[in-house]
Each structure stands twice: as structure tokens, then as C-alpha cells.
Amino acid sequence: MKLGWSDVTPESLWLNRRSFMAGAAALAATPAFALSGKPSALSTDQKPNSFEEITNYNNFYEFGFGKEDPARYAGALTTDPWSVEIGGLVERPGSYGVEDLAPESALEERIYRLRCVEAWSMVIPWLGVPLASVLNKAGVQPGAKFVAFETVLRPDEMVGQRSRGIDWPYREGLRIDEAMHPLTILATGLYDKPMPNQNGAPIRLVVPWKYGFKSIKSVVKITLTDRPPQTSWEMLQPNEYGFYANVNPEVDHPRWSQATERRIGAGLLAGRQETLMFNGYGDQVADLYSGMDLAKNY
């Protein structure tokens, strides 16, 4: 029998102790399944963080501003059914199901470094497909220069969206060449599991050479356009968060240094490690920004 997203108990139910105790009976009766992805030469050989670290320490402000809030509250998000509206400068606009955009047979395992703008980092084994393959399905028109993304707007299920500050829904964007780059993926899982709600279920963007806030979660809308799209953090604090958000140890955040980072799970005695330009992906992506002032275009 083929199982759908709704057949899987949200990971947050058993990652959060209180939710686990409340939902133990349901968990015992719920089937689970594993995903698999083809190994990729684009993966790092660094050891990934544990599943528990990845799913219990993250930012997903739609569920609150604390690092544990996503795991605590994301179980309320309904992820089945789910569709992504692709429009703008495309040949085949429409509403696409997750299974159409990222069929299990096409999934790749991409073990990527993640660098948060807050100066902490992880290594995460994502499962996903190149964003380029998705955009090609929709048919990119010659005039498309940028790709805009929006997350789902459901304040009834996402408690953080009831707060003021960010103009919901969360928005992000890429240049078309960034979006079509082989490193850029849409992920639907991690650690051979369907994407946990707190990490952006059922489908999210992953751009490993940029700060983590660029990798928008729970995507419901992708629009190709000929002009730079507005992005949430750029609208909120443009002096701190630029459109590009490339990892750059030479350009500090106005309130802290970006020269070093704290690796989650490394232990109290591990110390900080130097941050690499483009998060260590410079050999693959530096040519995208040839001739640009990366302090001005931050």
C-alpha cells in the first residue's frame, strides 16, 4: 500500500517529550516509512549532526522565536494535501503536488553544511531534487531573471504568524542563475525520513552557500519574475539582511562578527571554528559573483 504524508506521525510528537507522552498510543498505531536518495558527489564528507540536534535546534519563526519552538508547535501544521503554485514567467504555470515536483525515484542525498546568520552551524543530510529540475518542468521563459518564494500562511496552525513584526507570509528570493545552480535543491526529507514539520515540511528550499534564512521552509508559491523580489528580512531590517545573504566571514553583521561560528553538537570544549567564504562552496559558486562588491551586495 502506498502511504502518503498524512500517514506519518509528525516527528515533533516524539521529539518533544510532552507531546510524546500525550501521543504515545497514536504513535504505536501509526505506520512509518523511510525514504532513500541517491548519493551525490556534491555532498560534504563532514559528519552530519544527529537527527535530534537537527530537529530540536532551529529557526522557524512561524512557530515562535525560540530554538525549541518549532519542535514544540509544528505538529499542528497540516502537510497533506499540499501543492506548490508555480507562476510568473513560466511556460506551464499551475499547481503542482510535492510528489510531482520531487518524486521519490528522483531524490538525491545532499549532505550540506548549514551556516546560520546567527553564527552557528550544522551539517545536515537532506533528501531532495535540484531546483533547476523543478523550474524546467514549469518551463523557464527567457525573460526570467529572479525566482520568488513564499511560505504557507496559516496563522490558525502556525502560532508565530499571529505575532507582529514580520509581514507574513515569509518571502525569499534568488537570482535565476543561483536558482538553477546544481547545489540549490528543494528538499522533502532528511536522514532518510520525510521532512519533519519543524524543518520545513513537506518541501523547502536549501541553498548551502547562503545564510540559513534564505532557505525558506514550507513553500507554497514559486514565481519567476524579471525584477528582484521583496524578501522578508530585507523588508524588515535592510541594514542587517541583504538580498544575497552569501556566507562571508569578511563582512560582519552589524551586531556581531561573522569570522567564526559555533558548531552545534561539538561540545563546550570544542571552541569556535573559522567561517569559510561561501560556507566552503566557493569553488562551485564564486563565479556567480565575479566583479560584484560583496560588502555592498551583502
Rank of each mutant, 00 (worst) to 15 (best):
D167L: 09
R263W: 09
P196W: 01
R162N: 13
K217T: 07
K193M: 12
L205Y: 09
G189P: 05
L153A: 13
R164S: 15
P238R: 08
R164V: 12
F213D: 10
E234C: 10
I176S: 04
K193W: 00
R162K: 15
A245G: 14
G160S: 11
E240R: 11
P229C: 06
L153C: 12
N248H: 06
S257C: 09
D167K: 13
G242K: 04
A187R: 05
L224G: 03
G160T: 13
I166P: 03
T188D: 00
P155C: 14
S215C: 10
E261S: 15
Q198M: 13
E261P: 02
Q230G: 05
S232W: 01
Q161V: 08
K210I: 02
G265E: 11
M235R: 06
A201S: 14
R171S: 03
D252H: 04
R164Y: 11
V219E: 07
S257A: 12
L236M: 12
K214H: 05
R204K: 15
L205H: 07
P202D: 10
D192R: 14
R154K: 15
S232T: 15
V220D: 02
R263V: 12
R262A: 11
Y244K: 10
T223P: 01
N197M: 06
T225H: 03
R204M: 12
G242W: 04
R227G: 00
S215F: 02
